[in-house]
């Protein structure tokens, strides 16, 4: 028996909006500690890892570990039918091949349930070791989204370079080049508006902007984004979900030409 009641149902709606274009089908893994997902895009270049911890749910019952295969496009269709203020409850019986999404309006005057068929998906996970990163940049998520969008009108790839001067996002294309430098800035009114750069050593890596723009669809989940870079590792672009967990995107770099 599985029953997860999320008062802030809009969170789940935002999670689906963030990941549905990157991954078509995925297993949601449910255990006593939380609701999670790990899935790669079809070309094995990018990976999304989601964690929603049990304590973030108003009611969390998961009697045994289960893995529920879902088509994210179909799941998104169902979640779009929930209002932004609705409470969302996920329910599944042991051995069932369906999951039920229940939507309750805040004043309880409308209750809807949508039952979705589950699917069998080969469960393949990647082991992601804990790593030390050369540089970690924390910045406003809207700023990062803006930069990726702006650069993608000029070029297809972004070079992200961290030096003691700041973090530089560069691209080049047929019409020209663009460089955007963000310096550390902690003298802001609100902590979420700060740009904080922790650098152990300079690092410069090239990534496909198409994926970065896809990751930026998670912007509504968090005011800030954390970008962790190391020359030997895929970049990690993390959106923390307040009091609950995170959505992390991993992206393999392009090889410098």
């Amino acid at each position: 028996m599985l029953e997860l009641r999320l008062v802030q149902g809009s969170l789940l709606k935002k999670v689906l909006e963030a990941i549905k274009d990157l991954v078509n089908d995925a297993n949601f893994d449910c255990s006593a500690t939380g609701f999670s997902l790990q899935a790669m895009d079809s070309s094995h270049v990018a990976l999304v890892a989601l964690l929603l911890r049990n304590e973030g749910f108003e009611h969390y019952r998961c009697d045994r570990n289960i893995s529920m295969g879902m088509n994210l496009g179909n799941m998104n269709k169902m979640l779009k039918c929930a209002g932004n203020d609705d409470i969302i409850t996920l329910k599944a019986d042991d051995g069932s091949d369906t999951v039920t999404f229940m939507f309750e309006s805040p004043n309880q005057d409308k209750i809807a349930d949508f039952e979705m068929k589950l699917m069998d998906i080969d469960s393949e996970h990647l082991g992601i070791p804990e790593a030390e990163y050369h540089a970690i940049v924390r910045m406003p998520s809207a700023e990062f989204a803006r930069i990726c969008k702006d650069l993608s009108s000029i070029g297809d790839t972004v070079v992200i370079s961290v030096t003691k001067e700041g973090v530089k996002f560069s691209t080049k294309g047929d019409i020209g080049t663009a460089n955007i430098v963000c310096r550390q800035n902690t003298t802001v009114d609100k902590p979420e508006e700060a740009t904080v750069i922790e650098m152990k050593e300079p690092v410069s890596l090239t990534f496909a902007l198409r994926y970065m723009n896809s990751f930026a669809k998670a912007t509504p989940l968090s005011h800030t984004v954390t970008i962790s870079l190391s020359s030997e590792l895929p970049v990690v672009v993390e959106y923390k979900i307040e009091d609950m967990g995170y959505v992390r995107f991993y992206l393999a770099p392009k090889i410098e030409e």
């Binding site: 790669m40 030997e232 590792l233 895929p234 991993y250 393999a252 392009k254 090889i255």
Partner: peptide, 14 residues
């Protein structure tokens, strides 16, 4: 693209 690395070059399946 040929110069795009795969995640599986960095992480192992389990």
């Amino acid at each position: 693209a040929e110069n795009q690395k795969s995640l599986t070059a960095y992480f192992d399946w389990y």
